[in-house]
Design a binder for these strands. Structure first.
Lengths: 220, 220
DNA sequence: GCGACTTTGTTCCTGCGTTCACAAGCGGCT
DNA sequence: AGCCGCTTGTGAACGCAGGAACAAAGTCGC
């Protein structure tokens, strides 16, 4: 049994594939049937050659001289990313950010559906958001087990994030998206992907400051 | 005039420096005065050697045989990142996510302060969030000019994000953090840093799926 | 005062990601 | 039917980030 394409797709490529998928959906809605790599790359903000290399990881699906068929390419990327099946997710921490995430329409259209919202505060329990009722955190394990959720999202304050991480992992969650501003140390076999909004802002501010300093240097 | 340290710090290093800064603040609150690179690296979730290399970019400040002085290192990183000065930011799009961002305490403690909240919907205008009143989008330019805000945050729906980006850039904003699920094409001289929550989730799900497939392969 | 241990700072090296450039292939025109 | 132009897919080179190992340096114990 041969393996025509290597199973390992670079992480950076995966992130871009998700972007291509979004752009392709927009093109399909616009009625387009074919796109060239240059056009798609421009819409996604990447280099055309890099885009072709990314796409080559999932087996050629383009037609030389013409471009890519929008719907076919979209389906193929969705298949590789596993975006066809609906994935059950649980969300812990229904503060401002958690509420926004629970209501975010972008998740549902990408195959992610929340099957449980949890908060430690009695004031939040019972609220209804996006068709779900906020449950007390004590029901976390039973819900994860019952729904077989493999993805957890942490939007709690920093001081409880690690314990929530441990509980999610113990309940069977294998992948965790962490919005809390702490570095989590997950048990073996569990992936944590941190999303720190302050870090993003600081990097952005630094780049801007660096650019300004560079410009001033040139002027001098 | 010599340049003792090269002005270019890799972007990946900058992102980690922001994480170190967060960890150091936690250590300082805990009363610690010194840390070793190993300990700090473990708390930040990185390799000790990499951490030392990151820190070497801003001139050595550690003491051999002892480690790093927490407060001094924190101040030095804050200085390099420009986190000492308060930076004025404007936020456009006060939906669920925008509200969460406006209320997010993590920004203020890192030197970012919002000086303007804007929304196109009359229903949102007038709301008070985190001490600020939501203004109509028509006042965007005048507020940016008056406050000299250099950073903009876009949390609008996708279809208006590009026009908001253009208006921010025209008003003088040089750095934009974009939460809208579209690829923005900014005017020259303006940086855009995209934060796509759906992409993060999809990458996470793919990695988990790949890991599961790998495990099944080994079992077979 | 001296030796040994600890920890930093640096250097080398390996691997990955990105970019450029070219060959291969397909459609359209004559 | 044959040629031309356009676009994909791939191969190679470049640059960069990450990791490991080693030398320098400072402190603690005797």
């Amino acid at each position: 049994m041969i393996q025509p394409r290597p199973r390992t797709i670079p992480e950076a490529t995966v992130a871009r594939l998700a972007v291509y998928l979004r752009v392709l959906s927009g093109l399909a809605d616009g009625g387009r049937t074919t796109v060239s790599s240059g056009e798609l790359a421009s819409a996604a903000g990447v280099n055309p050659a890099g885009l072709r290399k990314d796409l080559s990881h999932l087996g050629s699906c383009g037609v030389r001289g013409v471009g890519y068929e929008v719907s076919a390419l979209r389906e193929r990327i969705a298949h590789v990313l596993g975006a066809e099946q609906s994935r059950a997710c649980v969300l812990v921490g229904i503060g401002n950010l958690g509420t926004a995430l629970a209501d975010y329409a972008g998740f549902g259209s990408r195959g992610f559906r929340f099957v449980g919202l949890f908060d430690a505060s009695p004031a939040q329990v019972g609220r209804e958001i996006g068709g779900l009722t906020v449950q007390p955190i004590s029901e976390l394990e039973s819900t994860v087990t019952a729904t077989d959720a493999a993805i957890g999202v942490i939007a709690t304050p920093a001081d409880v994030a690690q314990s929530v991480c441990d509980r999610l992992a113990a309940a069977g969650v294998r992948s965790i998206l962490n919005f809390a501003p702490v570095t989590l140390t997950p048990p073996p076999g569990v992936d944590v992907r941190p999303v720190d909004l302050s870090v993003e802002l600081q990097v952005l501010a630094f780049l801007g400051q660096q650019r300004t300093a560079r410009a001033a240097e040139v002027t001098a």
